[in-house]
Design a protein around this nucleic acid. Sequence first.
DNA 1: GTTTTTTTGATAATGGTTATTAAAAAACAA
DNA 2: TTGTTTTTTAATAACCATTATCAAAAAAAC
Lengths: 152, 152
Amino acid sequence: MNSRNISPEAQNRIEEMLAKLKSSDFRITPQRYAVLRILAASEEHPSVAEIYESVRAEFPTTSLATVYKTVSLLKDIGEVLELGFHDGNNRYDGNRPFPHPHVICMQCRKIMDPELAGLDDLSAEMNRKTGYKILSHRLDFYGLCPDCQKLA
Amino acid sequence: MNSRNISPEAQNRIEEMLAKLKSSDFRITPQRYAVLRILAASEEHPSVAEIYESVRAEFPTTSLATVYKTVSLLKDIGEVLELGFHDGNNRYDGNRPFPHPHVICMQCRKIMDPELAGLDDLSAEMNRKTGYKILSHRLDFYGLCPDCQKLA
DNA sequence: GTTTTTTTGATAATGGTTATTAAAAAACAA
DNA sequence: TTGTTTTTTAATAACCATTATCAAAAAAAC
Ligand SMILES: [Mn+2]
Ligand SMILES: [Mn+2]
Ligand SMILES: [Zn+2]
Ligand SMILES: [Zn+2]
């Protein structure tokens, strides 16, 4: 058995990431391939610790440092979006490696990608009104997910 | 000489914070008053280290831990907004202790409060589309401030 | 084959923040 | 006032996700 329920979109992201690694003259090692596959397949914005756990399930000798370095590398070549949190436990999105809004549950820390229109205009408005040259942005909504609302 | 260029708005914020401390049954110590005044007066979203330095200028025996605890206390009673960054160096806004957008210079780390319309609607849209009960949000724009653009 | 470069794995170091705790200050009681 | 209780401070140790270091392993180049 090779792949367990890899969606066509995830498969596509895997190809893109592999291509970008290759074109950037980085080697595709088993460890990198494992990390990359998890990032491409997961919709859950996993943390490094979670990626580490998954990788070790099929590649038990992998080091935590290697996971950190691989995630950082993928971030540097623009194939992974990092969601940094000051209370540690950063989260990563390998599906949409560009700025987009997130909804974060304050209780269970679940993170989703909401569909949201009319946001791209804001950067232009920023440029005009502040004189800053806007290069990126981050928009997080905090609240309670449906599951945690039920429990409350 | 008592106050050096305290604007009426800052003075107002000071009164509000003092009142909130009192009504929450916390004591108004010289250390807390010093931290509070800096947060109310500064438009620069200072870090704890910067607040610490300012406080020590007029109150040299103050401990760093006290500054941390005071800032945290003011945050807990809703009188200060915390802007956490995962690379340490969190920043604080004592003027507008409610969610509002920020523009951050990626070079000099200057942070401003831009005027920005049409954002409050987004929370409602989030509620509808995601099922999350939205309680807060954070919107940061990253770019280069006018000064750093000149130098580039 | 040998040499050179890249990558890994193990572990030490980093640094902003938090926890701890004894001393000081303030509030309270008699 | 004097003693008692509660809160706050100051100093410092602990925390912990991340980063740095570096020798060993793997891959590429020769
Ligand atoms: Mn996402
Ligand atoms: Mn602000
Ligand atoms: Zn939840
Ligand atoms: Zn700047």
